[in-house]
């Protein structure tokens, strides 16, 4: 009796639920189309503005001494980005992977603290990281590419730890046990079985972290400072990066400098896009890949 009552009630609610469903489908569809259109518009706009000036000269020359002049390029920023992000990657990848292994494989005493710190660091505004490095290093030793690399490394570190820990958790326990059961030590099992199995997932995480570091500007203003005058490849001195040059050229009032900034923006977007797509391709090929 009760069952039939509730069944008919559910039946009466059916047209209304179908109407709600239809409306929601349309609303969500429109929102999705809107978001995609917005992103494409930004990309198209940057591409149109950037392509006006982007060319071989832009990639191989430094900016003119007087920013109001036309010509020149961001070669020093491109070199600086590669050097600084390269050092940041070399610093953060081994430490990040080691921390993730400690957390997931050894569940060490520090594991919980490490997981908590990772979450906190990921949420930290990057300028705070920059200010931290400024206070501890730059205030004593001056601006340098290396200080910038340390700041970027600190930003990449939690991203790498989290991505690596995520894929390590996806490696089946059975694989570890199969290796242990052969009389292989714990450490060798991690090095020879677990990490290679998770390799493509870890690579994806690292590439996404590199893409993120490429675009950072605020922490570099406080550490690497920038150098618009000449090509500098020595990370012990102040250095420019692509993001810093975009910033310094964009805030001038000169159309010539802003044209360079647009071309730099397009270059940066292409680099980040290539890294992100590359990360996805590596991830798709892999045995154990990250959830993203």
């Amino acid at each position: 009796m009760a069952a039939s009552t509730s069944a008919s009630a559910a039946h009466r609610g059916l047209p209304r639920r179908m109407a709600v469903n239809a409306v929601m489908t349309v609303v969500l569809g429109l929102v999705t189309v809107g978001v995609v259109a917005l992103l494409l518009w930004i990309l198209a706009y940057v591409a149109r503005q950037g392509l006006k000036y982007l060319g071989p000269m832009f990639l191989t020359q430094t900016p003119p001494g007087d920013p109001s002049q036309a010509g020149g390029g961001f070669a020093n920023g491109i070199v600086g980005s590669v050097v600084i992000v390269g050092i940041a990657t070399a610093l953060s990848v081994p430490i990040g992977i080691a921390a993730a292994v400690h957390m997931v494989e050894y569940r060490g005493r520090l594991a919980r603290a490490c997981g908590f710190l990772t979450d906190v660091l990921i949420g930290l505004p990057s300028i705070v990281t920059g200010a931290f490095v400024y206070a501890l290093w730059v205030a004593h030793f001056g601006f340098s590419g290396l200080a910038g690399a340390v700041a970027l490394g600190l930003i990449m570190l939690p991203l790498i730890i989290r991505a690596t820990a995520e894929v390590l958790r996806l490696v089946p326990v059975e694989l570890r046990e199969a290796s242990l059961a052969l009389g292989v030590s714990r450490a060798r099992t991690i090095m020879a079985i677990v990490l290679p199995t998770a390799r493509s997932g870890i690579t994806t995480g690292v590439m996404l972290a590199v893409a993120r570091a490429m675009g950072e500007t605020a922490p570099l203003l406080l550490t690497a400072l920038g150098n618009d005058l000449f090509l500098e490849a020595n990370p012990a001195r102040r250095m420019s990066t692509l993001s810093l040059q975009i910033f310094s050229n964009a805030i001038t009032g000169f159309a010539t400098a802003q044209a360079r900034a647009w071309a730099g923006t397009l270059t940066l977007i292409v680099i980040v896009l290539v890294l992100s797509v590359g990360a996805r391709l590596v991830g798709r090929r892999g045995i154990v890949r990250s959830a993203r």
Partner: peptide
């Protein structure tokens, strides 16, 4: 084990030799 657990990054031959080589 219950589920076959070949090491996914290794060839047939390397799987067989895994215990000897890793150990």
């Amino acid at each position: 084990f219950q589920r076959p657990t070949p090491f996914p990054t290794m060839s047939v031959r390397d799987n067989v030799l895994a215990g000897l080589q890793l150990g």
